[in-house]
């Protein structure tokens, strides 16, 4: 359960970006989470509802973009998803593979409301 720490970090990133852009309210937060980050959306949402209270981010909607973990075979170049369990290349059975995607953990962008200058 490291989602509390993760959620606190999301809050502080969004909070800082809102302040730098004279935002009065954050309405939406867009996250990109690779499968290998092993973060559970539900717990992030659960913590979010508590820790965002009273901040510029209160009520902001969290959008989770999930990126599946992808492997690529060095022998035959086949690309395949990691799925639930690590497997050798389904095309040629080679174990000579590498992880190509799925480790992302990003706050990609936010939508804010701003005071008219």
């Amino acid at each position: 359960m490291h989602e509390l720490a993760i959620t606190e970090s999301i809050l502080s990133i969004a909070d800082q970006a809102a302040k730098e852009n004279n935002g009065t309210k954050v309405t939406d937060i867009y996250l990109i989470l690779g499968q290998l980050s092993s973060i559970v959306d539900d717990s992030v949402q659960f913590y979010w509802d508590h820790i965002s209270l009273g901040t510029v981010c209160e009520g902001a909607v969290l959008h989770f973009e999930r990126r599946p973990a992808m492997l690529r075979c060095k022998s035959c170049n086949h690309q395949y998803p990691l799925g639930e369990i690590l497997q050798t290349c389904p095309n040629c059975q080679s174990p000579d593979v590498f992880i190509e995607a799925g480790e992302e953990m990003l706050v990609h962008h936010i939508d804010i409301l701003r005071e008219e200058p």
């Binding site: 852009n21 962008h109 939508d111 008219e116």
Partner: peptide, 16 residues
């Protein structure tokens, strides 16, 4: 006024 703010920041940034 609503505005989109690009961030693209790693969530683990402050810990790192």
């Amino acid at each position: 006024m609503s505005q989109r703010v690009e961030i693209v920041k790693r969530i683990m940034d402050s810990n790192d």
